[in-house]
Amino acid sequence: MVDLSIKGKTVLIAGGAKNLGGLIARDLAEHGAKAIAIHYHSAASKAEADATVAAVKAAGAQAEAFQADLTQPGAVAKLFADAKSAFGAPDIAINTVGKVLKKPIADTTDEEFDSMFAINTKVAYQFIREAGKHLADNGKLLTLVTSLLGAYTPFYSTYAGSKVAVEHFTRAASKEYGARGISVNAIGPGPMDTPFFYGQEGADAVAYHKTAAALSPFSKTGLTDIEDIAPYVRFIVSEGWWMTGQTILVNGGYTTK
Rank of each mutant, 00 (worst) to 15 (best):
S157V: 04
S157C: 04
S157Q: 09
T158G: 02
T158E: 09
Y159A: 01
S162C: 07
S162G: 10
S162V: 00
K163S: 02
V166K: 04
E167T: 15
H168P: 01
H168C: 03
H168K: 14
T170P: 13
R171D: 00
R171W: 13
R171G: 04
R171P: 00
A172I: 12
A172H: 07
A172G: 10
A173F: 08
A173N: 07
S174W: 07
S174V: 04
K175A: 06
E176T: 09
Y177V: 07
Y177S: 04
G178M: 10
A179Q: 14
R180A: 12
G181P: 13
G181A: 10
I182S: 14
I182K: 13
I182P: 06
A186W: 05
I187S: 08
G188C: 01
G188A: 10
P189A: 11
G190L: 03
P191Q: 04
M192W: 06
M192G: 12
T194N: 02
T194P: 09
P195E: 08
F196D: 10
F196G: 06
F196E: 12
F196C: 01
F196M: 11
F197M: 15
Y198R: 14
G199F: 00
Q200M: 11
Q200V: 13
E201H: 15
E201Q: 15
E201A: 15
G202S: 09
G202F: 00
G202T: 12
D204P: 07
D204Y: 00
A205D: 14
A207K: 14
Y208A: 13
